[in-house]
Write a protein that binds this DNA or RNA. Structure first.
Length: 754
DNA sequence: CCAAAGATTGTCACA
DNA sequence: CAATCTTTGG
């Protein structure tokens, strides 16, 4: 335990306080990771079974790194039984194990943002709503905020405040869309990112015995980056900690930069209320940066109100001033950055991976890339259009998703006619209508194609059948075949590889290579995970990893030291000798959309604070007076954040325009009603259950009067089809003639007819 | 049904 | 300037 000597008094106290609620307020660069690592090691040395420790981190990478560091202290065997991961990945695992309680299969799909928006778009179109008023992304954000505040679809429908807001925004049917969306996800056996939190909370709320199991399983909880947890995450943590109260949270209110995702600094303040015998330790000594950088950062953050009082200080050297560069174009800004790095590298032999270029938006990376490439400076871009977001990759992944979970409608939609196999929009539309009419999944329509009729030509029907048999063959191989072999077989047999191969353009070739690369990745994953204890097939495990990947998680096998290019968000938790923060322009940083309220401005300022505090030795900031945005050249002014800096800390590199007057950013105060009070309770959910009308197929006779919950009253005018696929033709009063599969249609019998 | 050409629209950060 | 949607001609 000699490592305790490496710690300063508050750090040591944070490490050795084993039981009870504990909050560690960790200033930037104050050795937070070290404290977390040693704390876990200490727990284990005090006799806590590592199996009973759960550590929730912000990225998978952070979890991996911490695990590595811990295994050096306590040994690999113990370290391996620790549970560490992001909220989403840990809860996804729990949900798969307990999915039956929520009516989901354990192989449920995880919808990413694109899937969710695409589904919303479909729903909005089906309702015949104007997609300008009801933009999928707006609705998505609205639903996401609701879920992060633990408001289910049914609770949303009953909520007057939300209703009033939606009415005011001229989107009165948002609640209805939310309900339909939830139903469609359920039917597709899919959960979106927010569901992974909401449903975990629901699970624990509705099944106390399940909660009890996990409370005992995880007797010691650690939450990293606590300032970036949202209400749903905090609520689940509270559920888990309720029994033993051994909960340690670590965070820094000054570095909260995910309010847009529902993160809530309020959680820190609530924490003190929720756990009255809470112990709090503050880590205030910065070991990372020079005095100049620490002072500049403190000076900036002092402009924010309502912080947890703390004084970050350092014993490090004074250091150089912050370099400020004013460029005339974004390209010139890139040249400044690239040549600075180039020169420093030549002069001091600073390795390239000790430089980072940080920007507010991903779109800014291009000019920087070009400039670095010109000077042959190796670099690596994090985030942006990452590997797994490329079309060809998503296509192959969609095949695998359907093989794992045929109900996955978004994935199925993507591949049913790609590569082109003659199943066009018209046919698809008919199938969708039938799926909706019968309240079944698209895949079930495909399985019951004959019985449903649908008026499709024989040619089309054969094509759909061929597709179905191909997919069934893959599905049959899922449990037995080797993951790589199956994935390669899918890529080959689906025609995906041939389709890409036939495109000889440079982009086409690279797409082809990307798919091969993905197959390689699967092979590597399979080799690595081969001897995992649980006998579940590799491919689903791989898919889960991919679905919950963070931008910061992507690995790079090339070990050449490279300059890091990333957004400030992605840089959270990292440190570099020399940091360039670029694009400090009004309405870019702070960003246009975040300048309308004090709260938004403060979040942008915290973002700037995070950017500054990544630097150890040297910080440079820059802006440009013109910049290409939306494809045309725009004039820009210096960011107000530049004027907020103490001028003593700055050394201008080029003449800069005097005192850029920023427009007053504090005009209006837009508030959101999603800050739900902590005691608000989730309403019993009903949308996961099945509806009424469980008659037997044989009960229905021609001539009967029936009622359908969507089409209303009607009369059965014919029944046909083979056993097991009996189909009724019903003449509805309102909607006319429909063909419904009896085993799915929920038809209430109103009378025997004449 | 599909490819190519033309029109439109949006880009703030993320699991 | 992209990526995406819509139109058009085969």
């Amino acid at each position: 335990m000699e490592y305790l000597n490496e710690l300063n008094p508050p750090q040591r106290a944070a490490v050795t306080t084993v039981e009870g609620p504990l909050m560690i307020i960790a200033g930037a660069g104050s050795g937070k990771t070290r404290v977390l690592t040693y704390r876990i090691a200490y727990l284990v040395e005090q006799g806590v079974d590592p199996f009973q420790i759960l550590a929730l981190t912000f990225t998978n990478k952070a979890a991996r790194e911490m695990k590595e560091r811990i295994s050096k202290v306590i040994g690999e065997t113990d370290a391996r039984s620790l549970w560490m991961g992001t909220f989403h990945s840990v809860f996804a695992r729990i949900l798969r194990a307990e999915s039956d309680k929520l009516g989901f299969p354990s192989n449920f799909s995880i919808y990413d943002t694109d899937d969710a928006k695409s589904l919303l778009k479909t729903i909005i179109n089906e309702l015949g709503l104007d997609d300008k008023t009801y933009k999928a992304s707006t609705i998505y954000n609205r639903i996401s905020s609701a879920k992060n505040a633990l408001v289910t679809a049914s609770a949303y429908q009953k909520n007057e405040i939300l209703k009033a807001e939606d009415d005011e925004a001229l989107r009165p049917r948002t609640a209805e869309i939310y309900a339909l969306y939830t139903g469609r996800c359920f039917k597709a056996s899919a959960m979106d990112f927010d569901d992974l939190l909401l449903k975990t909370y629901e699970l624990f709320l509705r099944y106390p015995e399940v909660l009890y199991k996990y409370q005992n399983r995880f007797q010691f909880l650690l939450v990293d980056e606590f300032q970036d947890t949202n209400f749903a995450q905090y609520s689940i943590v509270k559920q888990l900690a309720a029994l033993y109260q051994n909960i340690c949270v670590v965070g820094d209110d000054a570095q909260s930069i995910y309010a847009f995702r529902g993160a809530n600094i309020q959680n820190i303040l609530d924490f003190e209320q929720d756990y009255p015998d809470l112990k709090t330790f503050k880590l205030e000594q910065n070991y990372r940066s020079t005095q100049c950088i620490v002072e500049a950062a403190n000076h900036i953050i002092a402009n924010n109100r309502g912080q947890i009082p703390k004084t970050v200080w350092t014993q490090n050297e004074k250091g150089n001033k912050i370099k400020l560069y004013r460029a005339l174009t974004d390209n010139e800004e890139g040249q400044f950055v690239a040549s600075s790095i180039h020169e420093t590298h030549l002069r001091d032999h600073t390795p390239h991976d000790q430089f980072a270029v940080l920007y507010r938006t991903n779109a800014q990376s291009r000019a920087l890339e070009e400039a670095l490439r010109k000077l042959n400076v190796p670099y690596r871009i994090y985030g942006g259009l990452s590997f797994y977001h490329r079309k060809e990759i998503k296509d192959l992944l969609a095949y695998i998703r359907v093989v794992i979970n045929p109900a996955d409608e978004e994935a199925l939609k993507r591949i049913i006619n790609y590569p082109a196999r003659g199943i066009g929009k018209a046919s698809l539309d008919k199938m969708f209508v039938s799926a909706a009419d019968n309240d079944i999944s698209l895949w079930e329509v495909i399985e019951n194609l004959e019985a449903l009729g649908l008026g499709l030509g024989t040619g089309i029907r054969t094509k759909i059948e061929e597709f179905r048999f191909m997919m069934m063959r893959f599905q049959g191989a899922l449990m037995t075949a080797n993951a790589y072999d199956l994935a390669a077989e899918i890529a080959q047999h689906s025609g995906l590889l041939q389709d890409l191969y036939s495109d000889k353009s440079p982009e086409g070739v690279s797409r082809y290579e990307n798919v091969l690369e993905l197959l390689n990745g699967i092979k590597e994953f399979a080799d690595r995970e081969e001897n995992l204890p649980d006998g579940r097939p590799i491919l689903p495990a791989f898919m889960e990893d991919v679905a919950l990947l963070t931008d910061a998680d992507e690995s790079d096998d090339d070990t050449t030291p490279k300059v890091s290019l990333m957004t400030i968000h992605a840089a959270k938790g990292l440190e570099f000798q020399e940091v360039f923060v670029v694009g400090l322009e009004d309405s870019l940083f702070p960003n246009q959309q975040n300048m309308h309220s004090r709260a938004e401005m403060e979040e942008e300022r915290r973002l700037f604070y995070v950017a500054i505090t990544r630097a150890m030795k040297q910080l440079s900031i820059s802006y440009s007076t013109t910049r290409y945005r939306y494809g045309s050249l725009m004039h820009s002014e210096a960011s107000p954040f530049i004027t907020e800096l103490n001028q003593e800390h700055i050394e201008p590199i080029a003449a800069r325009r005097a005192g850029g007057n920023a427009p007053d950013p504090f005009r209006r105060n837009i508030s959101s009603s999603f800050s739900i009070p902590a005691h608000s309770r989730l309403r019993k959910v009903s949308e996961t259950g099945t509806a009424s009308a469980s008659n037997n197929v044989s009960d229905y006779k021609v001539g009967m009067l029936v009622k359908h919950n969507r089409f209303g009253q009607g009369k059965i005018i014919g029944i046909d089809g083979p056993a097991g696929q009996k189909t009724a033709t019903v003449l509805f009063k309102e909607s006319g003639e429909k063909r419904l599969l009896l085993k799915f249609a929920k038809l209430d019998i109103l009378g025997a007819g004449e």
